[in-house]
Every structure is written in structure tokens, then in C-alpha cells.
């Protein structure tokens, strides 16, 4: 039994995939807190689909996936931020327009020019295959940078997220802080896409923070809990995907969904929470 569980660790691709999945889980869990508490879960879904457009374009143009999809993803994130701030439409509508258009463009590019470069299925559902040492280094660097941003800008990020009007009145440059958050979302999604896939990454951004929210009323504790839950789901899900011989994305997400169901069943809402719902 133990031998069977440890067997995949003999393969370098699996070890790399496991590290990336664990880091991606933690990273998505961390940044997902800012998405969930803003009530912008749709952003997680939309931004990953927008990045798919860049993924398709970079594959066809033969440029680095990180470069092509990165530029595309950041541009989409800033476009959403800009449209939301400057026009009298809601964030959900802005996300809907920008990201579905980008996703559609990616699908058209694949349909017209074929699946050159990275695998279409791997992009959509995630794959442990092809996770290189470079991928490990890239996600490790991004994780350190994002943890640094969340740590060193904790109060401005919290203030802007909780109460943007008063934050602005208190002298914070909230438009810059929100743009920074959008870039952090885009980059986090970008480096996590390889193992989680376009269609399922939203779950990694939304489920761990939702579980953490059920467990705590403290923002700082939520950040820590959500990261830990995301990392655990990434680790277990990646092992599960190997043993069930399924794609990594569904493996990780199903573990997170099961964790949510368990916590949801255990943590009954208080009277005041029921009243607020």
C-alpha cells in the first residue's frame, strides 16, 4: 500500500508536478481570498478564460507561453479594471465582455490554425506531463513575490478591498492598488494554469477561500488558512490524479470540493449568519 502510494515519487515529472500543484494550490488559495471577499468569483472564471486566448496565440506564434499569455492576461486584467472603473457598468459585465471575447478568440485561433505547440486538452484541464524544472522555479518565484506583496501591503490591500471609498478618502491610491491586485490575479492564474487547466482554475481560486471563510472571521487568518487548504488540496489532488489516471485539474478540484462539503456540513451557521444570508 505504502509502496504504491510512493511509487509516483520515483518519476521526476511527477515530483515537479506535485511541487507545482502544491504551490499553485497555495498561491490560488492566497489570492483567491481577495477575489471571494469582493464577491468577484466570476473574475476567477473569466480571467482564466481570457488567458486562454493568449495561450492559443503564443502557441501559434511560437513565442514563450509565459510571455504571450502573460502579456495577454495582464492586458485583459487591466482592461477589466479600467472598464469597471470608468464606465457605468458592473464588474461582472466588464468581466463577461472582456474575458469571453478573449476566450472566443483563443478557440478561433485553435480552430483555424490547429493545435500546434501545447496540447489543447492540457490547456483546458491541466496536465502533470511536461512540468519542467523551469515551471517549478517560475511558480516558486511568483509565490514568493505574491506573498511579499500581500505581507508588505497588507493594510492598503485590506482597506481598499473592504472599504475603497474610505481608503481613497484616507489618502490611499486605490486605483493603483486595484490594478496591482488585478496583475497579481493574472500572473497567479498564468503560472497555475499548467496543472489546473483553464476550465478548473476558478475552483482553486474560489473553494479554498470559501472553506477558510467558514472557519474564521479574521481576514489575516483567512489568508493563512486558505493558502494551507489550497496547498493541501493541490498535494492530495495531484496524487489522486496519478492513481486514478485522470487529469491533474479535476483531481485537485474534486479534493477541494470534498473538503468544502465536509467543512460545510460540520460548521453550522450561527443565528446571526443565517439572518445575514
Amino acid at each position: 500500500m505504502i509502496d504504491e502510494l510512493l511509487r509516483p515519487f520515483a518519476f521526476e515529472f511527477f515530483r515537479n508536478g506535485l511541487i507545482v500543484a502544491t504551490l499553485a494550490g497555495a498561491l490560488c488559495g492566497l489570492v483567491g481570498v481577495y477575489i471571494v471577499v469582493r464577491g468577484m468569483s466570476y473574475l476567477a472564471h473569466g480571467l482564466s478564460h481570457a488567458i486562454f486566448g493568449g495561450f492559443a496565440a503564443s502557441a501559434l506564434l511560437g513565442v514563450s507561453f509565459l510571455l504571450g499569455a502573460g502579456v495577454w492576461g495582464i492586458a485583459s486584467a487591466l482592461a477589466i479594471n479600467s472598464v469597471t472603473r470608468r464606465r457605468p457598468i458592473g464588474a461582472d459585465a466588464a468581466i463577461g465582455v472582456v474575458t469571453t471575447a478573449s476566450f472566443a478568440l483563443g478557440l478561433i485561433l485553435f480552430a483555424l490554425f490547429g493545435h500546434s505547440g501545447a496540447s489543447f486538452d492540457a490547456a483546458l484541464f491541466g496536465s502533470v506531463l511536461g512540468v519542467s524544472l523551469t515551471s517549478v522555479i517560475v511558480i516558486a518565484i511568483v509565490s514568493v513575490v505574491v506573498v511579499g506583496i500581500v505581507t508588505f501591503a497588507y493594510r492598503p490591500l485590506l482597506f481598499t478591498t473592504f472599504d475603497p471609498e474610505v481608503a481613497a478618502a484616507s489618502g490611499l491610491r486605490t486605483s493603483r492598488i486595484e490594478a496591482l491586485l488585478m496583475v497579481v490575479f493574472a500572473i497567479s492564474i498564468l503560472v497555475s494554469m499548467q496543472v489546473l487547466g483553464v476550465t478548473l482554475i476558478a475552483a482553486a481560486l474560489v473553494i479554498p477561500p470559501t472553506i477558510a471563510r467558514l472557519l474564521t472571521n479574521s481576514f489575516s487568518q483567512m489568508l493563512i488558512l486558505s493558502s494551507a487548504i489550497g496547498a493541501t488540496c493541490g498535494f492530495i489532488g495531484m496524487n489522486l490524479s496519478y492513481h486514478l489516471d485522470v487529469q491533474s485539474g479535476p483531481g485537485i478540484v474534486i479534493v477541494a470540493a470534498c473538503a468544502f462539503l465536509v467543512v460545510y456540513a460540520i460548521k453550522r451557521p450561527t443565528g446571526m449568519q443565517r439572518a445575514a444570508a
Binding site: F152, Y154, R155, S218
Partner: peptide, 25 residues
């Protein structure tokens, strides 16, 4: 009425966020 009462923030965290001269938690 404009406050999001479901936001995960304690009284201490809510008050301290106004001290923007310091950035750490």
C-alpha cells in the same frame, strides 16, 4: 448601510486598517 457585514474582519482589524502609515498586518 454601505458596509459589507459579511466581510471577514474583526473589530481590531477594521480599526487598524486606517493606520496606513504602516503596511504590515
Amino acid at each position: 448601510e454601505s458596509v459589507n457585514w459579511n466581510f471577514p474582519v474583526t473589530v481590531r482589524q477594521c480599526i487598524l486598517m486606517a493606520r496606513t502609515s504602516r503596511r504590515f498586518a
